[in-house]
Structure formats: C-alpha cells, structure tokens
C-alpha cells in the first residue's frame, strides 16, 4: 500500500538492537578490550615531522590504504544487519558505496581522544598536523571537528551500532531500485535507535543531534571525493597504479 511505516513490537526492537550491537562489536576494527588496553600514546614531534615530510602522494596512498581497511570491516557489518542481504545486489552496492565512508567517520569516535584532539592512526594517536602532507587541511580540520562533536555525545556501543546501521540504510541514496524496502529497514532501525536511547535514559535532544550529523557526514564525504578528484588530476598514475582497488571502485 506504499506505507513504509512498520509496526514493530518492543520485543522486536530489543531483538534488532541486540543483533545490530553484536554485529557492530564483531566487526569493529578495534575491540573494546583492545581500546581499554591502548596506551593512547601520541606521536612524538620527530614522528609528526616524518609524516609531514612525506611526499604528498605517499601520504595519500597511506591514508587510502587505512580508509580501505576500515571500509572492509564496515562491509562485514552491513552483511550482518538484519535484512541487508535480502536487498537486491544493486541496492547493497549503492548503500555501501554511499555510506561506508560515513560509517568509518562515525566509528572514528571510538578511537578519538577529545582531550588531545587526536585519532588512532598507524599505531599511535595523531593530531591534524600529522596529515599536513595530504594538502587538504580544511577537510582534515572538518573530520577532526566532526569526531570531536560526535564524541561529545558519549554514545554507548549499542547507540553507535544502531546509528551506524541507520546511516548505512539511508533510503534517500540515488540509484536505489527497491527504495521502499530500504525505507522500511531504515525506519525499523530508527525505532530501535530511539528505543535504545530511551532505555539508556538519554535526553530527548540526542536523536535530533544525531539527525544533524547525517548532513555533516554527507558534506565530509563529498569533500573527500572533491579532494580525491583534485589529487587524481595531478597524480593520475599514482592513483591508477598504487591506490587500493576497492578505494578506486568506491570513490573513483
């Protein structure tokens, strides 16, 4: 009948939340235990300088590799989301092409140290200055600002899991063939997220704050694509021969 609003019981929402949280924890690059044991050690000044003095293309290549590794975990997460693999193959690809990097940015807040404005990268905690050689300071600043702002919400793992699934199941992506089916999945995920927020006794405004993050994520990803195009215009051979094939497939 064209109505996408699903009727879902509390028990179903609990079940959905549990499955998505489990999938999130199983597919996070860094386990909770690893995070607890992390020494949160920052790069020393000479190490920062060594990253800064790398040729631009070498730093781009390193970051493309790290992003690709993180995306592979997000693909595994997507596969374990109830209903994702029931979507047609076209839509699975559309959702991951558009949403996988957004989820990497969301997951970044798990390995972000707000006090030092540093993110876990290549074995230690790195501030924005480590990425200087990339030549896109504005994008890097925005990524760090995003991580800081999302971290300030202090989302629990189950909230992060459901928010990540909500992002991946965005029904307004272009080129979806079975939009209504994606919409139903997203609405169910949103209900589960609201249910968990309520259960965790979060204040009412959190869901609205998370909705604002959706547009921030889109802006970050489109700016990443712009920066990549600009980089590729100067170094087409580096991208062609040295960038991970999955990265090129998703962002090329």
């Amino acid at each position: 009948d064209g109505d996408a609003s699903p009727t879902v019981s509390m028990a179903e929402l609990d079940h959905l939340s549990q499955i998505i949280s489990k999938s999130h924890l199983e597919t996070c690059q860094y386990l909770k235990e690893e995070l607890q044991q992390m020494s949160w050690q920052s790069f020393l000044q000479d190490e920062v300088e060594s990253y800064q003095s790398k040729p631009r293309e070498v730093m781009w290549q390193l970051c493309a590799l790290k992003i690709t590794e993180a995306i592979q975990y997000v693909v595994e997460f997507a596969k374990r989301i109830d209903g994702f693999m029931d979507l047609c193959q076209n839509d699975q690809i559309v959702l991951l092409k558009a949403g996988s990097l957004e989820v990497v940015f969301v997951r970044m807040c798990r390995v972000f140290d707000s006090q030092n404005n540093a993110v876990y990268f290549d074995g230690k905690f790195a501030g924005p200055d480590v990425f200087k050689a990339l030549g896109c300071d504005d994008l890097i600043t925005s990524v760090f600002d995003f991580a800081k702002s999302l971290s300030s919400l202090h989302l629990s793992e189950d909230e992060l899991a459901l928010f990540s699934a909500f992002i991946l199941l965005s029904a307004d992506r272009s080129w979806l063939q079975e939009k209504l089916q994606v919409e139903k999945l997203q609405q169910k995920t949103q209900l589960a997220l609201q249910h968990v927020l309520q259960k965790n006794q979060r204040e009412d405004g959190v869901m609205n704050k998370l909705r604002c993050k959706v547009s921030a994520l889109r802006s970050l990803c489109s700016r990443h694509t712009e920066k990549l195009s600009a980089f590729r215009a100067i170094y087409p051979d580096i991208v062609r021969s040295h960038f991970p094939p999955l990265y090129k497939e998703l962002f090329g």
Binding site: V75, M85, Q89, N90, I93, L96, K97, L246, E249, L250
Partner: peptide, 17 residues
C-alpha cells in the same frame, strides 16, 4: 553497477567470517 564494483560485489558474496 555490479560490473563496475567487482571487488565490493565479491566481498558481499563471501560468506561472513
């Protein structure tokens, strides 16, 4: 789309580990 995203398609086809 599947043709242009062979690696992603392959990752989706692989059984979850």
């Amino acid at each position: 789309l599947k043709e242009k995203h062979k690696i992603l398609h392959q990752l989706l086809q692989n059984s979850t580990s």
